[in-house]
Design a binder for these strands. Structure first.
Lengths: 152, 152
DNA sequence: TTGATTTCCGGGCGAAGCATTCGGATATTC
DNA sequence: GAATATCCGAATGCTTCGCCCGGAAATCAA
């Protein structure tokens, strides 16, 4: 159980855009080189973010990407769902073990576990915005600069 | 982000053993056929559960598997960790994007998100035992039998 | 003692998914 | 019209997943 690079890069990329809000739009390749990520891949991710309505794009020369909404109103869940299509995927829905066992009103004791997981995960990711991460970023940055090792 | 069949089958299998505690040991193939799972695969899963100390095995004719501890003392987390090697895997540790970014004391704002996820997930899975699932199972069974559709 | 049963265990294998690249079409600016 | 970008599907190589196979060792019953 882990997130793929879609989710991880998606966060890195949208965080980069959040950092450059209010400026000129940032081309995909600039994001990629600044963050040290594969260029063509970043382009695909930005495409997904745009289709989800999280970023807006401007085509042609001087074009690029911008966050569609203020960073405080974009949750980590938004980004992950846009980039990876889902946060936690419950097997009962997507990869059922068998039709009978996984039928919605069978007496399966395991399903509630996955449901609970899904709810907790979504709630947590819903509660964190790109704005929060941006704030944390500069806070940690400051700690590091005065020589205090950040935890974890 | 989802659990693999190792985790899911692992739960099904240990739940099956929990249901038959106190009886003669259950051979792997009996578990498999009773639960409708691939036999050789179940064998491998039971092997992992045994290596993790969750089940005990008896070799030879009349042999089979038994839960090593009472079902109330075996958490869902125990089972998943045994079957899948981890619950939620944090990329910073296992699949770092880059050495610098993911270095423990870099100012990465994303890492705390994964850490928080990991903690919440582990806490939730720690709080559920096979005994709980067994109880829920019979409760739901009863609801179904009197014609009330279980939720979710 | 022999045969049946069963765990033990590594390796293999096809299919799917992941991470990434490619090629080219379309739009915009200078 | 050249340069810069987004747009988009498809192709690629790699890893992991889900599962099977073959055989060795242990145990029990006849």
């Amino acid at each position: 159980m882990r997130v793929t690079t879609w989710a991880e890069y998606g966060l890195i990329v949208s965080l980069h855009l959040a950092r450059h809000q209010g400026e000129v739009p940032v081309p995909a390749r600039d994001v990629a080189s600044a963050e040290g990520l594969p260029g063509d891949y970043v382009e695909q991710i930005l495409l997904k973010l745009r289709r989800a309505g999280l970023v807006t794009s401007i085509r042609g020369a001087k074009g690029g990407y911008r966050l569609a909404r203020p960073a405080e109103t974009v949750s980590v869940r938004d980004v992950i769902e846009a980039a990876e299509n889902h946060t936690f995927e419950v097997n009962c829905d997507a990869h059922p073990v068998s039709a009978e066992r996984c039928h919605p009103n069978s007496a399966c004791a395991i399903r509630p576990v996955w449901r609970a997981l899904q709810q907790q995960i979504d709630a947590l990711l819903d509660g964190i915005s790109l704005g929060d991460l941006l704030a944390e970023e500069s806070a940690v940055e400051e700690l590091v600069s005065i020589g205090v090792a950040p935890r974890s």
